[in-house]
């Protein structure tokens, strides 16, 4: 079977462009779909951010705890729906070694973020987000974006947008290692 070398070159060029484009896009946007397949087991990028009360909080300081890392903003309506759930989940699972950490990703003043958090009755630390931290998590292009991190600091799951409360509970249990125990 005779193949036209020109066509082969064109096909080769298309494949090369696709590969380059794929790598470039992945680098630029971070990891996206499929979500869990790509991030599960990766070490959650560490960060050092200021909390609303002025403390420096490092993610690595929470090693040994299961962490729900929630990127949110004061302008985000769906984020407001999740917050009361998070307050309840912190109370329910906190004694088992679970910690929720909110990262505010907006331009609002610290006072406004603080007011918002107080109005919502938030009982977990709220950190003042930086774009670089968002970038290290693949770029926060959707709010809310929530990561679930196990006790070893490894990512278990990621969720974009508002999810049902049961989805959060399932991921929290996974992060706490309860699902693994249940399967044994």
């Amino acid at each position: 079977m005779k193949r036209n070398p020109l066509v082969l070159v064109v096909v080769g060029a298309i494949v090369a462009v696709m590969l380059w484009s794929g790598i470039h896009t992945a680098r630029k946007n971070g990891t996206h779909a499929p979500i869990i397949g790509q991030i599960r087991g990766q070490v959650a990028p560490d960060f050092d951010l200021k909390s609303l009360d002025g403390k420096d909080v490092k993610l690595s300081d929470l090693r040994g705890k299961a962490v729900l890392l929630n990127f949110w903003a004061t302008y985000c309506g769906p984020c407001k729906i999740e917050m009361p759930w998070f307050v309840e989940l912190q109370k329910e699972y906190g004694p088992q070694g679970f910690q929720i950490v909110g990262v505010a990703m907006d331009d609002a003043s610290t006072e406004d973020i603080d007011k918002f958090a107080k109005d919502m009755g938030v009982n977990y630390p709220i950190l003042l987000g930086k774009e670089a931290v968002g970038d290290s998590y693949g770029g926060i292009n959707v709010l809310p974006t929530t990561f679930f991190i196990d006790r070893d600091g490894k990512l278990v799951a990621r969720e974009f947008g508002l999810q049902s409360r049961s989805v959060f509970v399932d991921h929290i249990k996974q992060a706490l290692g309860q699902t693994v125990q249940a399967q044994k």
Binding site: R3, N4, V7, V11, I14, V15, M18, S21, G22, T25, A26, N29, H32, A33, G139, N141, V142, F160
Partner: peptide, 24 residues
Amino acid sequence: MRKLLVSSFLIFAISACAQEPLGL
């Protein structure tokens, strides 16, 4: 030859879908 082009197109289409970033 046609098969080669068609499969290249399919790979391109699948790859384009897979790269679609979440968000806007």
